[in-house]
Simulated scan of single mutants.
Amino acid sequence: MLIDIALDAMGSDKSPEPELRGAILACRQLPVRVHLVGPQDILRRGLKDMLGRERLPIEIVHASEHIAMDDKAAHAVRTKKDSSMRVGLKLVREKKVAGFFTAGNTGAAMATAKMVLGALPGVDRPALALIVPTMSGSPAILLDVGANVDCKPQNLEQFAVMGELYARSVLKISRPRVGVLSVGEEEGKGNDLTREAYALIKQLPLNFIGNVEGRDIYNGNCDVIVCDGFVGNVALKTSEGLTRLVREMLKASLTSTVTAQVGALLSRKAFNAFKRRLDPSEYGGAPLLGVRGVCIIGHGSSNDRAIMNGVRVAAEFAQAGINERIATEFSQRTPEPATTADSLGLPLQ
């Protein structure tokens, strides 16, 4: 059976071409039916040009508006009621699709998901969970990477619970190691937020290893790294810049030093393998944990392969039943209700 996934066709920087090509790749390689959400005339023409007479399980759902990257999230969510984001997330709420993927405005996607889907019981603020490669060969989860720039200790406590469930359910890590991202490994290190979060998470029935530092994001010593969205987003953007730097420097070094044809071929293969391991397009997108439905958010610069993998992640997330597991976990707890102001959060643009 095909898994139905809604795809925001107007989200990425160069939309809708990457979305159209990504939908085609997804339907050719994955057991999915993609519902492209956006202006139907533009999408129909684009699909006809790319597909010709080929028939794939792709449907078009009309949305007359879209939210641009430079739109203010709160204003756009209130005023653009027929945006491709809102229409796609309504399909999730109405259970017409199993999940939703967008490479659009992160803040708007998070705010729209909270408004349309709502938060799971017991979850004050949803969090973006990014899968990152590590030196051990196994991926790790970093959260939050941009949904909430201001957090309270109990928010990080909830992030730890959701991230640990995600690591067990999707990454198949039997006993994930959970750490708080701080400036030192000692329990007393960090600011008020990390110290108080440390005390809360320490009491949870998790494999908590304490504070971890920036280098632990990629060395494989921790499976779930918890932080507020401000720190997480800075770490994410810094990592992206460093990855590009390393790739370009390595490429330049190989080009200038390899002269033999056989050596050049072997080096090219090694470089391509290295590039794929660090390529963000292979990871698809970051799930928004803690909402009543599957919402995956990708990078604005996503290419067709990143879009395809975003659809894949949405399908895998839905199949794993992560939301149901999070709801079950928090139903066994008695959290304090969030205030109206706190529940809104402050998403990044």
Rank of each mutant, 00 (worst) to 15 (best):
M162F: 11
P287G: 02
H62A: 12
L143G: 05
N272I: 11
T102D: 00
A314E: 01
A314G: 09
M249K: 12
D4H: 11
L346Q: 10
V291I: 14
L142V: 15
R277S: 14
A127V: 14
V226R: 00
E240M: 03
L91I: 14
L89V: 13
M135W: 03
L36G: 07
V178E: 03
D223K: 04
A314Q: 07
G179W: 05
M162G: 07
L346K: 12
L130D: 00
K152H: 06
R125C: 06
K114S: 12
P121N: 08
E17N: 01
P121E: 10
E164Y: 01
V32Y: 08
Y283L: 15
C151Q: 01
V37A: 08
R244P: 00
I217C: 02
L204V: 03
M115L: 15
F271I: 09
P205K: 13
R86P: 09
R276A: 15
M85Y: 12
M135L: 15
S84A: 14
K251C: 09
S281A: 15
G284P: 06
V32N: 03
S301F: 09
D41Y: 07
G52A: 09
A140I: 11
D13N: 04
L47C: 02
C151A: 15
L266M: 14
L288I: 10
K90V: 00
G293H: 02
D71P: 02
L7F: 10
E164W: 07
A103N: 08
G232H: 02
D223I: 02
N148M: 08
L289G: 09
N191C: 02
Q154K: 14
V34N: 01
P121D: 12
G107H: 01
A147G: 09
R86M: 08
A252E: 15
S267E: 13
G220W: 07
V37T: 10
F330L: 09
G300T: 03
A338H: 03
G321M: 07
G38N: 07
S138A: 13
R168Y: 02
A252W: 05
L200I: 10
N221R: 13
P287S: 09
V37G: 05
F271H: 12
R53L: 12
A286F: 06
S239L: 10
G214A: 11
Q158K: 13
R244V: 04
N272W: 10
I297C: 03
T238V: 15
S267H: 13
M308P: 00
A127F: 10
V77N: 00
G300I: 01
G99F: 13
D71R: 05
V34H: 00
A338E: 04
A341V: 11
A235I: 02
K189E: 13
A160I: 06
G345F: 01
L193V: 09
V183M: 13
A98R: 14
P280L: 12
V183L: 14
N211E: 07
G184V: 07
L200H: 04
N211K: 04
D13M: 06
A109I: 01
V32G: 01
A74P: 03
V294T: 13
A264Y: 05
A127M: 11
I209Q: 07
D70K: 06
G263A: 13
M1G: 14
A23C: 11
L200M: 15
G122M: 02
A23D: 07
T259R: 13
G122N: 05
L200P: 04
V97M: 11
G214P: 11
K189L: 11
